[in-house]
């Protein structure tokens, strides 16, 4: 890591287009898309196999999901604004905007945990049917990604708070923002394919 850091420090300026680390992260995101595509395919194949259990329209609450969606969408927006502040070297704004992003992300994860806990409590756990297994796997994998992103965000904010907006911190913020926007796009498809089509 130190080697890479010094290389970039020697460069005259932080050039987003030329950053191979950002490019490498982009490739990772694209492979993560393939992972989610496989889970979506499983869900699409199994979503009618309810084995006498409830179907999507019986267990999903549209308004609850809408609030979850708006929380994640807003967090994606505040994250983007925070990144612009980082490129402008406004440290306090970065911490402010990313705190909002963090809180929105945490509320999203909490809402999802409450939803899962409710389903399991009423007997509709992932053991109930193939439909519920694929549902928990798909939505749970996304939730896990969001949780990892939140942990990364927390660590990065502490780093920026103590060390300031160094070159490597700004680059990490760029990667984190890409990750966060990516999770938002995956959620749009979960919202559409799992929830809206399940309710319709």
């Amino acid at each position: 890591m130190e080697d890479i850091d010094t290389q970039i420090q020697e460069a005259p300026k932080y050039d987003k287009t030329d950053d191979t680390i950002v490019f490498g992260f982009w490739i990772y995101l694209m492979t993560d898309c393939v992972l989610f595509a496989a889970l979506f395919a499983v869900y699409a194949v199994l979503h009618n196999n309810t084995f006498g259990g409830p179907s999507g329209s019986q267990i999903f609450s549209p308004h609850y999901v809408l609030i979850e969606t708006l929380a994640l969408l807003s967090s994606s927006f505040t994250c983007g604004i925070g990144l612009i502040s980082a490129y402008n070297m406004q440290k306090n704004r970065v911490i402010g905007w990313f705190s909002v992003t963090f809180l929105l992300g945490v509320s999203f994860v909490i809402m999802e945990i409450v939803e899962f806990a409710h389903l399991i409590n009423v007997g509709n756990s992932f053991k109930r049917s193939a439909f519920l297994s694929s549902y928990f796997t798909l939505v749970g994998t996304h939730g896990l990604h969001v949780t990892v992103g939140l942990i990364g965000m927390l660590i990065l904010m502490i780093r920026i708070y103590t060390k300031g907006l160094t070159k490597s911190s700004v680059r990490r913020l760029t990667l984190l923002s890409l990750f966060w926007h990516f999770l938002d796009i995956i959620w749009i498809f979960i919202f559409t394919i799992v929830y809206m089509m399940g309710i319709a």
Partner: peptide, 12 residues
């Protein structure tokens, strides 16, 4: 250590 500041506020 600091990255290039986007100097033009209009760009911002």
């Amino acid at each position: 250590e600091t990255p290039q500041i986007i100097s033009d506020w209009r760009e911002h």
